[in-house]
Computed example of a mutant assay.
Amino acid sequence: MMNTIRSKQAILIGAVILLTVFLFTRDIKGLVKPKQATTGVPAVGQLTSAGSTINLTEVSTAAKNSINANLAAEITTLENAYKTAPDDEKMNAAKVLAEKWDDVEQAVPSALYLEIIAGKERNLNNWLAAGGRLMKAFDNTQDSLISPVLLQKANTAYTNAVALDSTNLEAKTGLGITIVNGMGAPMSGIAMLLDVVKKDPKNLKANMSLGTFAIKSGQFDKAITRFNDIIAIKPSPDAYFYLATAYENLGKNEEAVDAYLNSKKLAANPTLSNFIDKKVKELKNKN
């Protein structure tokens, strides 16, 4: 029995390692992040920011060092314009910066500017925009120091959105996802996401979060049902990959092979293809 448990854990850890690669290649987003499976990291429902903050200037400097020098110079000009703008023009300058940072795929500084905007112009759309960009930053970052802060900020943004409109499904979905990812008791987030899916069965974000939670909690039968539902709505490489992982953990190797190959086909990613070719060979040898 212990060997079976260890085997399943090894499969899941292997899947997480692969997904780590995709977070670096950025071809597949929103998958299980390695820091959630790393020794010493709080379990689901226990991730906290411990009073940490994110310095926008430091984030901006680091982001500019990772992009084209001409684009970095353009952003510096926009930042100077933002800093010197009169109060009645400051938010427009922040919006320009948020979109410019997003255009160059730097979600963290983009999200922080959207958060500033939402804090000044406190309406539903602004909080939703801030929450969405903060979660994008959370999904993409590999920085274990700022990751929990981004999640906390996203949680706050969606909490404010729900306070303005408790019936808004985008707000409830975002809030539920932040809770499941570590902001509070995960089952309350699950209940919120289940309510969203009840009202909107084709909600991909809510369904994906429920599916990944089922994987992480070892509820592989539920994960299979969830990811098959997702694939019926909109097939995607990550949905097929998670489906394959769930099948593999239950010893359903033929089904796992089919799902892995579908993931490979849709992603058309060399890193994924190489992994899946090895995985498929391994599973076929078990039959």
Rank of each mutant, 00 (worst) to 15 (best):
M2L: 15
M2Y: 14
T4Y: 12
Q9A: 14
A10Q: 15
I11M: 15
G14M: 02
A15H: 15
L18W: 10
R26A: 13
D27Q: 15
D27S: 13
K29A: 15
G30C: 14
L31A: 15
L31Q: 12
V32M: 11
P34D: 11
G40F: 01
G40E: 00
V41P: 01
P42Q: 01
A43F: 14
G45Y: 09
T48F: 08
G51H: 05
T53C: 05
I54S: 01
L56C: 00
V59K: 07
S60I: 07
S60G: 13
A63S: 11
K64T: 07
K64H: 04
I67Y: 05
L71P: 01
A73S: 10
A73W: 03
I75P: 03
I75T: 05
L78Y: 03
E79P: 05
A85G: 07
D87N: 10
D87Q: 12
D88I: 05
E89W: 07
M91Q: 08
N92Q: 10
A93M: 10
K100P: 02
E105M: 12
Q106W: 07
P109R: 09
P109L: 04
S110Q: 09
N123M: 14
N125S: 13
N125H: 14
A129F: 09
R133L: 10
A137N: 06
D139M: 12
N140Y: 15
Q142P: 03
D143A: 05
D143T: 03
D143S: 04
S144V: 14
S144R: 13
S144Q: 12
L145E: 15
I146Q: 03
S147C: 04
P148L: 00
K153C: 05
A154P: 02
A154K: 06
A157W: 06
N160Q: 11
A161N: 09
S166L: 03
S166A: 13
S166C: 03
T167Y: 11
N168I: 01
A171Q: 09
T173G: 00
L175D: 03
L175M: 10
I177P: 01
V180N: 00
N181G: 09
A185K: 10
P186C: 05
G189N: 03
A191D: 12
A191K: 14
L194Y: 06
L194V: 06
D195H: 05
K198F: 11
K198Y: 10
K198R: 13
D200S: 12
N203P: 03
L204T: 13
N207W: 00
N207L: 10
N207R: 14
M208G: 09
S209N: 10
S209A: 12
F213G: 00
S217N: 13
A223C: 03
F227E: 00
F227Q: 00
D229R: 12
I230L: 15
I233A: 09
I233P: 06
K234W: 06
P235N: 02
S236Q: 09
A239H: 02
Y240P: 00
Y240T: 00
Y242E: 06
L243N: 00
A246M: 05
K252T: 07
E254C: 02
A256H: 01
V257P: 02
Y260F: 15
Y260V: 10
Y260S: 11
L261F: 04
K265P: 04
T271S: 12
L272K: 09
S273N: 13
N274L: 13
N274V: 14
K278Y: 12
K281S: 15
L283S: 01
K284G: 07
K286E: 11
K286N: 07
